[in-house]
Measured scan of single mutants.
Amino acid sequence: AEKTGIVNVSSSLNAREGASTSSKVIGSLSGNTKVTIVGEEGAFYKIEYKGSHGYVAKEYIKDIKDE
């Protein structure tokens, strides 16, 4: 099942092309942005936001229960 997560940073969080800190940054998400978690790979979540996919470090995403 898809989960919703909240970007848990004070400034912004980089979204990357792949599940690695050396992957190209494809965008950034500001704190408290809601994202859909579609998968996980190592220390990263694969997320969907406004129709695009990217990878973000798990430690900066807070899971919330689907309402």
Rank of each mutant, 00 (worst) to 15 (best):
A1V: 13
A1I: 13
A1W: 15
E2S: 15
E2H: 15
E2F: 15
K3T: 07
T4S: 09
T4M: 09
T4P: 03
T4L: 08
G5I: 06
G5S: 04
G5C: 09
I6W: 12
I6H: 05
I6K: 05
V7W: 04
V7R: 02
N8M: 12
N8P: 04
V9N: 07
V9H: 10
S10V: 13
S10G: 10
S11P: 09
S11C: 15
S11A: 09
S11W: 09
S12R: 12
S12N: 09
S12L: 10
S12M: 12
S12V: 11
S12Q: 10
S12P: 08
S12W: 13
L13V: 15
L13R: 02
L13E: 02
L13Y: 03
N14F: 14
N14L: 15
N14V: 15
A15S: 04
A15W: 15
A15D: 01
A15C: 15
R16D: 01
R16A: 02
R16S: 05
R16M: 14
R16N: 07
E17N: 07
E17Y: 07
E17P: 05
G18L: 12
G18N: 10
A19G: 04
A19H: 04
S20L: 06
S20W: 07
S20E: 06
S20F: 08
S20P: 03
S20Q: 05
T21R: 11
T21Y: 14
T21P: 12
S22F: 09
S23W: 04
S23D: 05
S23P: 02
S23F: 07
K24W: 05
K24D: 05
K24V: 07
V25W: 06
G27H: 05
G27N: 03
L29T: 02
L29C: 06
L29K: 02
S30A: 14
S30D: 11
S30C: 14
S30Q: 14
G31P: 15
G31M: 11
G31S: 13
N32L: 09
N32R: 08
T33S: 10
T33H: 05
T33V: 09
K34G: 03
K34N: 04
K34A: 06
V35F: 04
V35M: 02
V35A: 01
V35H: 00
V35D: 00
V35P: 02
T36C: 11
T36Y: 13
T36R: 14
I37P: 01
I37N: 00
I37H: 00
V38K: 05
V38F: 05
V38C: 10
V38W: 05
G39Y: 04
G39I: 03
E40N: 04
E40W: 05
E40Y: 04
E41H: 07
E41M: 08
G42R: 02
G42V: 02
G42N: 06
G42E: 06
A43G: 11
F44N: 01
F44L: 02
F44G: 00
Y45A: 02
Y45R: 03
Y45G: 01
Y45E: 01
K46E: 05
K46N: 01
K46C: 10
I47K: 01
I47W: 00
E48M: 14
E48D: 06
E48S: 09
Y49P: 00
Y49F: 13
Y49G: 00
Y49A: 00
Y49N: 00
K50A: 11
K50C: 13
K50M: 13
K50F: 10
K50L: 11
G51H: 05
G51C: 08
G51S: 07
G51K: 04
G51R: 04
S52N: 07
S52P: 00
S52I: 14
S52E: 07
S52D: 06
S52Y: 11
H53C: 10
H53Y: 15
H53R: 05
H53S: 06
H53V: 13
G54A: 15
G54H: 05
G54Y: 13
G54L: 09
G54F: 12
G54C: 12
Y55S: 00
Y55R: 00
V56T: 00
V56E: 00
V56C: 04
V56D: 00
V56A: 01
A57V: 07
A57F: 11
A57D: 09
A57Q: 13
A57E: 15
K58C: 03
K58N: 00
E59D: 07
E59M: 12
E59T: 07
E59A: 11
Y60E: 05
Y60V: 04
Y60N: 05
I61K: 01
I61Q: 00
I61T: 01
I61Y: 01
K62Y: 09
K62W: 09
D63A: 10
D63S: 09
D63W: 12
I64R: 04
K65M: 11
K65D: 09
K65V: 12
D66H: 11
D66A: 11
E67C: 13
E67P: 11
E67D: 11
